[in-house]
């Protein structure tokens, strides 16, 4: 099964190499990994989607915890959360097809961010299912290039994952 981990790390050089190296040497499969700074510039947040049973996941979590730069790990899979991915797709768009493609974009609330003579670039955000459906809808027109960010996720409601809490909890 797939798990989504929210991991807070100190924003030190090499922290990505430490995390990536750990997954590789212990034989865990990363589905996707997205990383960026948080509101605190000293802290980065990784969203890691990892494949494995509970036992694997327990090991992943514990081993990640052993990295000194890793501050906190939350497995948010079982919780209510919002997840998003951004995709950019460059698709063949001969003038006569543009209308159709723009309709598809509308359906997915995607945006056209570049228009070339024969191609256009569309930007779409959404959860994995939506992104996948969007990609499938464009496939018949000829996808020239595709780039995805990997998933980022956040708990719904007033609960949050931050360094001041010891495990995500309800905010007062």
């Amino acid at each position: 099964m797939r798990h989504t981990l929210a991991v807070l790390v100190e924003n030190n050089p090499g922290v990505l190499a430490r995390v990536a190296g750990l997954f590789s040497r212990r034989g865990y499969n990363i589905d996707s990994l997205a990383v960026g700074r948080t509101d605190n510039p000293a802290i980065s947040r990784m969203t890691i989607v990892v494949e494995g049973d509970d036992r694997v996941l327990e090991q992943v979590t514990k081993q990640l915890h052993k990295l000194i730069d890793v501050i906190k790990i939350s497995d948010i899979t079982a919780d209510e959360y919002v997840d998003r991915e951004l995709v950019l797709i460059k698709v063949s768009a001969e003038p006569e097809k543009r209308g159709e493609i723009m309709q598809i974009a509308d359906v997915f609330r995607a945006r056209i961010v570049d228009l070339g003579r024969r191609t256009m670039i569309l930007e779409c955000t959404g959860n994995e299912g939506k992104v996948k459906a969007f990609e499938e809808s464009l496939r018949p027109y000829g996808i020239k290039e595709l780039v995805r960010t990997g998933k980022i996720a956040m708990l719904r409601g007033s609960r949050y994952t931050s360094i001041t809490t010891n495990g995500s909890r309800e905010d007062e």
Partner: peptide, 14 residues
Amino acid sequence: LLGRDSFQEADITG
């Protein structure tokens, strides 16, 4: 035994 800190295991590719 891979990835378990087994006897004479080292992540030499890493």
